[in-house]
Nucleic acid binder design. Structure first.
Lengths: 189, 189, 189, 189
DNA sequence: GATGAATGAGTGTTCATTCAT
DNA sequence: TATGAATGAACACTCATTCAT
């Protein structure tokens, strides 16, 4: 399962799992169905986690949204990371092998729907980033978290890594925000 | 060339380029050789750019390395971006279609070789990031820049986007550094 | 059982009949054996009916054979039709799904054996039809009767339909015979 | 090509024709496309012939339609038979191997559309046949003609056979008609 | 050198048949 | 006996590669 799912022949996948082709089709109706069955629980779990976070943030007054984002992430991320670690193989499939499946743009799509609307809702003046940069950074942030889970050796390393990644992204964004306020302040004089 | 290179049939690739299958094999010995030939100049160009940057940084005294990193990037990035934009198709192939080829981990590999050695050379105390986080962030930084080139509509948008991305990453890293120095300062008292 | 027997998977056939695959092979040794077992009673019944008719006709003096044919058919057909209707599914299998089995040419073969010998035995002068035409007409006659049973909605409709079909075929044949006799009569003068 | 087209493996069809599977797909896009390509000209030719006949009959006053049917058939049939004989293999495919293809009910369908409307247009009182009997007889008539072409050895035999078949069917129908008129006559007194 | 018809091993999928339970 | 998971050969179809022209 390390060269992508589509490109691996079903014969190989199945025989590496110790089955034969015929046996496989007793369990699944197609190669695609297997992929979806493997990946769906992980996808649902991630979706649920992120939806919860988004709902909490949406419940806050607009002006607090950005400030609390780090706190909310810090609170929820360990749970999500534990989930991803418990479903490492599936997370791998979802993040690395989904090309050509319905999960092809799972992360991108979800990020754009669930999170961009959130940051934009926090007031245009607040996040003075190029829209494309926002999109790419959010995608990159989550994709990097996923990589950390996939490449880390143990929970401790992964958690420290994720803390660092989160610090870099959120501090980086906050800093941009401050620079911008200073600029606005000077303009406003 | 927009559905992946491996999955596109050679017949299609070749005939969309206005050639015939037979002619193709006069020039290349295999599909893979074509891919490498297409991608090699872009890969070399990127490699050269990054090596230059690394060399300049390496020429600096250790304590200045991190501080100057932003400046060096700011100075060199436009050149690299212009190069990527001039070789957009090849960049696309390199970043999005390299699965299963020798360029599969081009970015990851290069980042780890060229840049991690650099940041690590800058002294452990300076970049108090988990090594995995460093690796992932550098990889993510360059990969995001690549995405900006691929998804941006025009040079202006791409440049603004790249500036934002760079700000977030470098400000984020600098901020971590400062937090750490303060911690060290208190410890050192 | 309405898409052909060969093309239906044994799994489907067996499970629609309320059995399991394993149980099936306790009763039959192969799919083909099942087909034969299903179809054999119907085939035998039809064969018996037609043999009876042939024997009666054969017991008549040659010059009466043709004249009585209609009477004999009229007498026996209802019995045969009832039999076919009582074994509609099997008749369907026999007539429509026998391709590739030993019953492939059941009707054709039987007609040619049982009935052509009869009409030919009735004296060449009597049935001045091209031999191929005889063969095809007899085959067509019985095949059309079978279709009537398969496509008719109820016994009444089927019986009326069969009467019409029989009229057309026998009247048609008798008419040819008369034409021929007139010709012979003129010749003989 | 004698066990049906669908059931014959493409490998076998193709290799019996002296080609390989790969070569085949240079000419046709699918097994079905091959079947259609083989059969289409024959189907079109037959359709054209029958449409011409139907148009001529439709141009006649209603009361003459039935009476002239034999003449029209006698005039047109030789041409159709020659066509079928020139396309014997294709006719065979069309009549015997079309199960599961778009030509599955070619004859039945055409007969019902082109000819039943004609006989019905000739006045309900005229053809006092059970509708199912009409349908089956017309289908049977044409199918038997087709069989004659497929099974006959030479043009002479086929033509004589077809004449006989036509005599039986048309005389049979005319006879039914007369019987009915007599009945009507008595009723009408 | 250029062509594209031909090759043949590969793909995902089906299904009659077997066999340990 | 009955089960249904497992088998493996078969299917239609694809495609990188070769080669006679």
């Amino acid at each position: 399962m390390d060269v992508g799912f589509q490109r691996a022949s079903l014969r190989r996948i199945v025989s590496e799992a110790g089955y034969t082709l015929g046996a496989f089709y007793g369990y699944y109706n197609s190669k695609e169905e297997l992929f979806n069955a493997l990946v769906e629980p992980a996808a649902k779990g991630i979706l649920t986690s992120l939806t919860e976070m988004a709902e909490i943030l949406n419940g806050l007054p607009d002006e607090e949204k950005l400030a609390k984002m780090t706190d909310v992430f810090t609170a929820y991320m360990p749970r999500l990371v534990d989930f991803l670690m418990d479903n490492r193989d599936e997370t791998y499939l979802l993040l690395e092998c989904a090309g050509g499946t319905r999960y092809e743009n799972f992360l991108s799509g979800m990020m754009e729907q669930n999170l961009l609307f959130m940051t934009q809702a926090s007031g245009k003046a607040e996040l003075p980033l190029e829209p494309l940069a926002q999109k790419l950074l959010v995608r990159s942030y989550f994709s990097t978290l996923g990589q950390a889970v996939l490449e880390g050796d143990d929970r401790e390393e992964i958690m420290r890594t994720i803390n660092d990644i989160q610090s870099v992204f959120t501090d980086g964004m906050v800093h941009i925000l401050q620079k911008n306020r200073e600029k606005d302040g000077k303009k406003g004089q």
